[in-house]
């Protein structure tokens, strides 16, 4: 066990740890952006019921949902170099650990996002698509001008939850040696033996960041919902 509990250390550790917030946010941003691309790509076979691809996406989503993210991280960390070496003779064993983290979280986010997108696009009233056709719009124009903007609104709350979940999940990156806030915390514990104080500092930082994200998301959500029924009094 560690040394005697010291309340002041919690405050003292925060500046050291917060220097590594950038890494955490980088992992988050990169995995969200790649996850969005993957999510859109995976939603298309589901929406258009493209044979084979559709089944593959279903399998992909259910596998990601059914396995812990930590195991997915190890699978990518140990599995990806092995596969690339075997199939393409590409050696990525020297690639920095952070890239494995980004890839894992992108794959994981992609699965979640694809389901969110699919549900949101389905939820836009088909009558509006018919109206778009009736005024002479093409399928593409209808998708980008009528369906997508409304699907974004519908998807937004779920997306926001995913992003916050993902932010917290990045705390597992240190297990494969990434020096993010958790990783730095790990070395602090090794150096000072004040584990509880370090974890309390970390929880304060994560909590504040999450609350800030929630604030921003709820502002955005209000904006997206401006044309919804609840807003009648605000505009009238």
């Amino acid at each position: 066990m560690g040394k005697a509990f010291d309340l002041m250390l919690i405050i003292e550790f925060i500046p050291t740890l917060i220097q590594y917030l950038g890494i955490t946010l980088q992992i988050l941003a990169a995995s969200i952006i790649l996850g969005l691309v993957l999510g859109i790509a995976a939603a298309i076979p589901r929406l258009y019921k493209i044979p084979i691809l559709n089944q593959l996406v279903i399998l992909y989503v259910s596998f990601i949902r059914g396995t812990p993210i930590l195991i997915q991280l190890f699978l990518v960390f140990y599995g990806l170099p092995a596969i690339l070496l075997l199939l393409f003779s590409i050696d990525i064993t020297r690639m920095e650990a952070i890239y494995f983290v980004i890839i894992t979280y992108a794959i994981s986010n992609g699965a979640g996002f694809s389901e969110i997108f699919r549900a949101a696009i389905r939820a836009v009233d088909y009558g509006q698509t018919e109206a778009a056709f009736s005024v002479g719009m093409t399928s593409r124009q209808n998708f980008f001008r009528i369906v997508l903007p409304q699907a974004v609104r519908i998807a937004f709350p779920n997306m926001a939850n995913s992003v916050i979940g993902s932010l917290k999940d990045t705390s597992l990156a240190f297990t494969i040696g990434v020096m993010d806030m958790m990783g730095r915390g790990d070395t602090l514990i090794a150096a000072t033996a004040h584990a509880l104080e370090v974890y309390l500092s970390l929880s304060i930082i994560y909590y504040i960041i999450v609350v800030m994200f929630e604030k921003i998301f709820s502002k955005l959500e209000k904006y997206f919902n401006r044309y919804q029924k609840a807003d009648v009094t605000a505009v009238a």
Binding site: D125, G127, Q128, A131, I146, Q150, R153, Y227
Partner: peptide, 8 residues
């Protein structure tokens, strides 16, 4: 059922 574009 009118089918107006709800976001416009």
């Amino acid at each position: 059922h009118y089918n107006l574009f709800a976001h416009k």
